[in-house]
Design a protein around this nucleic acid. Sequence first.
DNA 1: TCACAACTTCATAAC
DNA 2: GAAGTTGTGA
Length: 756
Amino acid sequence: MKDILADLTSAQREAVTYGAGPLLIVAGPGSGKTRVVTRRIAYLLSQGVKPWQITAVTFTNKAAGEMLSRVEAIVGKTNMWISTFHSLCAKILRMYGNAIGYPSSYTIYDEEDSKKIVSQCAEELGSKAGKKNMSQLRSLISTSKNKDIEIEALAFHDRTFKADFLREVYTLYQQRLREAFAMDFDDLLLNTRELFVRHPKVLEEFHGRFNWLLVDEYQDTNSCQYQISRILASKTRNFSATGDPDQSIYAWRGAEMKNVFKFLKDYESAKTVYLEDNFRSTKSILQVADCVIRYNENRIDKKLVTSNPEGEKPVLLVCYGADEEAEWIAERIAAHVEAGGIYRDFAVLYRTSAQSRSIENALKRAVIPYTIIGGLAFFQRREIKDIVAYLRLIDNPMDIVSFLRATSVPPRGLGEKTIHRLHAFARSAGVSMIEAMAHAEEVPGVGRTIAKKIEKFRSELLAYAGVKKFPVAPLVSNIVETSGYKKWMRENDEDWIDREDNLAELHAFALEYDMSHPEDGSLTDFLANVALLSSLDMSDDSADRALLMTLHAAKGLEFPCVVICGLEEGQLPHARSINSLGEIEEERRLFYVGVTRAKKTLALTCALGRTSYSDFGIRKKSRFIKEAEYTFDTIDMIARDPDSLFSDGGGVEDYLDALLKVSKKKREEFKRHDVFTDEVSQIGADEIPVRPRKIGDKGKTYKVGQLVTHKNFGSGKIAGIDTQGLYRVLKVEFDDGFATSILEQFADLLVRDENR
DNA sequence: TCACAACTTCATAAC
DNA sequence: GAAGTTGTGA
C-alpha cells in the first residue's frame, strides 16, 4: 500500500483511492495520468477487487502493454483485460459473435481489404464512378459508422455520390462482409454494441465480470465507444474515465471531446478530480502551449502549472525551404550529442508523413541514426499480406479477399471471375469454400481445366490446414516454402532479398507469439493481433536513435527534446482543415499536444517555401506562431541579412535563387508553377520576403480584354479577372494557345496599345 | 489469365 | 513520388 501511494500529490492520491462509483479524471499533459491509472488499478486490487473484474481501455496496444507491465510490477502477474477498444471488442465478438451470426474465426478487414469489397460492390451496382473514388466511398462508409449517422446524410456534405447510391453500396458492402465472415475495424465496435443491445444475457455475463471499467483518453472516444462504455458501466457504475479535452485530436474519425463533459451529466453523482500540475515540461515550454491553446473558443479555460525550472527559451527557425529546415534540425541533434546527450533524447514531429523525407535525408547525410515511428506498417507490406492471406484463408475459408490474394501469388490460373463464381456457389449451396472447391465442376461457368486447378489448390490448402492451425510459426514457414511463394518471388521480384528478410521477421513474430501463448494461443487470435496491431505498436524505440513521427503518433509520449517542423499555413494547420473553425481548433490542439511532449527543449521550424505534390509553393508562417510569438526566440534566416540575398540589386530572380538554392532548370519550373499559379491560396504575398520595388508592378491594374506582353511567354490577352480572397487573379491567354492564371501583383506584364 | 508497360491519379492524421 | 488503373499481347 505504501508503494501504491508513494510520491503522489494529493489530487493524484484522491483519484487513486476513490472507491466505487463514477469518477472523472481531467488530466492535463504531463500530469502523471498514466501513473494515476496504474496505481488506481493496483489500489483496487489491494482492496480485494479481483483482476478479472477489471477492464481497462487505452489508446494503443503498446500503451496497454506498458500499463499492464507497470501494474504487474506492483502486484505481480495478472490476467486482467487491458487493451484498446478495438481489441476488447474483437475479443468479446470472438466469444459471443455467433449470437449475431459470426463464427469465432471471423476475419478482421483492414482498410485495404475493405476497399476491395467496396469497389467490388460499386462495380456490381453499375457505378460509373470508376475505381478512382473508391477510397472516398470507403471512407464515407467509415464516417457513417464512426459518427453514428445514416450514410444518406453524408451525401449532402459530399456531392460525389447520390444518397440512394450510398445506401445501396453500404447495404451490399455489409452483406458481402457477412458472407465472407468478415468485419472492418468499425464493425468491431458496432457489432459489439449490437451484441449487447440485442442479447441481454450476454451483457449480463459481462456485467457480472467487469465490475470496474477504466477508460483512458476519453476525449477521443467516438459515439459507439462511448455507448459501449456506458452499457458496460450501467450495472455497477464503477467507471473511471480519464481525459483532456485540449488533447482531443481524432474528431476526424468520429471522436467527440464533449464526451468528457457529458460524463458529468451521464453520472450526476460523479466525482471529478483535476490533475493540473505538470511534472514534465519547463515553464517556458508550457508557456508556448498555453498561449496557443487559449485561442480555442470551444474549451474550458485551464492553465498549465509547473514547479519545474524556467528552462531554455524555445526557438523558432524561419528559413527558405524544407532542405534548410532539415539541415538545421540535423545540426541541432548533432550539437546535442556532441554536448553529451543521446540521439534518443530527440523527437522530430511533423503534421504529415511526407515531411519525413527531407528530414531523413538530412539525418542520413549527417550520419545521425533515427527511427520512424509509424509510417508504413510492417503488416501492410505486400509480401507479409500475401502470406497472411494464406493464414487467414486457412482460418476462415469464406474470406474472399484473402482467397483472391492467396490464389494469385504465385499465380495459379485462377482469376477474379472464377473465385467469385465459386464463392457465389458456396453461398447458395450453404457450404464452405473448401467444400465448394471439392465440387468445382458443378459450379456454373467453370470449365474442366479450371476445375482441375481449383482441385489442386484445394489439396494444397488442406495440406496446410491438415497439419495443425497452431502453433503458427511452422505454418508460416510451411506456406512460404510449399506454396512456391518463395521461388516465385525470387524469380519475379527484384526486391526479393528484402522481402525474404521481412518474411523471416514474420516467422520470428509468429514464433514469439507461439512461445508467449503456449496455453491460450490460436491462429484466430494470432490473426486478430496482426490485424489490430498499429504501426505504433510495432516500432522499436529502445535503441539510441532520434525519433521521427507524426504529431498524432506522439500522443501520450514524452521526450527531452522536441522539434515541431513545418509550422506553415497549409501544413500546420493543414490545408484540408483551414476552412473550418472547428477543424482549425483541432489543429491547434494537435500543436498543443506536440509542444507538451517536450520536457527540456523545444524548437519550432517554418519553411517559407515547400514542395509538395512535386509542386513548389510559397507558404505563410503558421498562425500558431503568431499566437505565441513572444514565447520563443526567432532565428530568421531570411530576415537576418536581407541585402545579402539580393547582392546585385536584383529582384524576383535573386529571390527565387535564394529560395530554391537550386539549378536554373528548377527555377524555370518554379516560374511556371508559382508566379504563374492556380493555387493562389498558398500564396501569402504579405509574407514573402522580397523587396517591394521589383516584384511585378503593384500599382498597375489590368482590365479584361487588354492586350499584354510577357517577357517569357510573349504576347497575349487578359481573358478574365477573378478575386480570390485579398488578391486579384488575372487569366491570361497567350497567342500560342497557352493560358494561365497570374496573381495580379506578380504579373509583370506590359500593356500593349490595342490599336497597334 | 497473366505480365509488363504506360499512364493517370492521388497524397492529413490511423484503429 | 508512389500506387493504382488501363491496355496490350501472349
